[in-house]
Simulated scan of single mutants.
Amino acid sequence: MRCGRRAGRLPPVERDLISRLAHADHPIAAPLGDAAVTALLNRALPRGDEHILDLGCGGGEWLLRALALAPDATAEGVDVSEAALDHARREAAQRGLADRLTLHEQDAAAFTPDQPPDLVLCVGSTHVFGGLLPALAAARKVLAPGGRVLVGDGYWERDPSPAAVEILGDLADLPTTVDTVTADGWVPVYGHISTRHELDDYEWNWTGSLAERAPGQLATATEHRNEWLRVYRDCFGFLTLVLTPAG
């Protein structure tokens, strides 16, 4: 979730630092395990030679795993965080993927690629666009004919408290979320509902990694953990979908 919606309450430099440290042990910045990430990417990349665009790529982990799975694919990522993009470049070089990855430091909502992507990724960063439907609209605008979108966003598993809405935003329940996507002209061809283990593992890593690596941010880690355990753990879920345009 790339530091989540709560990140908007922090200055950009502090937000970038906290996000990088908090995701050090869980580089997929969303509540998904490795097996789920691989399964989603395999369904999203049926040919293996696609051009991929990540709108809000953060440290680039989705793109790096996609390139590792699809040796003939190319990718580009967009993010406003210079530190996150520098991390992505270092990781790409270490994994031998740098020649197939291009990164852009700019607002994902204003980015137009030179080459229409066959796959658009936007997992845990729909808030950059103002929500799920605006993110899908941005993806549709640049997507190549016959392309796919891999999008991930939160939903309410049960009625949230006002405090949970304040922290995570105005989400819908799971059926309504899927209905909203299909009514917008998309066909789900695959999906993953994050398990309780994936959701908890993400939060334990977020809070623990930050506390361990930045003792000066212990109060931030503690606040996040308390919000998770006391406010939204029992009502928040996360859905990731592979979509194709209808018609």
Rank of each mutant, 00 (worst) to 15 (best):
E203M: 01
L67E: 02
E212Q: 07
L55Q: 05
W206A: 11
D173A: 07
R100E: 09
L45Y: 06
L103T: 02
V78C: 14
D25A: 12
A163L: 07
Y155Q: 02
L10Q: 08
L103N: 00
Y190K: 08
V120S: 03
L133D: 00
A73G: 07
D54M: 15
L64W: 15
H51R: 09
T102H: 10
L40Y: 12
S209A: 15
T177I: 01
D25W: 08
G247W: 10
A219M: 08
I18M: 13
E166H: 13
T222P: 06
T177Q: 14
A183T: 00
P116F: 15
P215D: 05
P215I: 04
T177G: 02
R43C: 13
A83N: 07
W62F: 13
A83T: 15
R90E: 15
E227R: 01
A219Y: 01
G33H: 04
G247K: 04
A221T: 11
D179H: 10
G8H: 08
F129T: 00
A83F: 01
L103P: 01
R5I: 12
P31L: 08
I28V: 09
A30L: 13
A108W: 06
G185S: 09
E50C: 03
P162G: 14
A164R: 13
D107H: 05
A246K: 10
E61I: 01
A70P: 11
G8L: 03
T177S: 06
A70T: 07
R89Y: 04
R65I: 02
D114E: 13
A24L: 08
D184F: 00
Q106E: 13
Y232D: 02
Q94H: 14
E223V: 09
L119N: 02
L63N: 03
D201Q: 11
F129N: 07
V13N: 03
A246R: 14
D107K: 11
D54K: 11
L69K: 07
V231G: 08
R2I: 09
V78Y: 03
V231S: 08
L229Y: 05
G147E: 10
V181R: 00
Y190W: 10
E166W: 13
T240R: 09
A93R: 15
E198A: 06
R5A: 06
A68Y: 09
C57R: 04
G147T: 02
G8M: 09
V120Y: 15
E76M: 01
I18H: 13
G58F: 00
H104A: 00
V78P: 11
A214C: 13
T126D: 00
A44L: 09
A139P: 13
I52L: 14
D173E: 12
R5Y: 12
A44G: 06
D49M: 07
A39S: 07
A109S: 07
G208A: 02
V123T: 09
D25K: 04
A7T: 14
A137T: 01
G96E: 03
A29P: 15
D159L: 14
L168M: 13
P245N: 03
P27W: 10
G56V: 07
P27L: 03
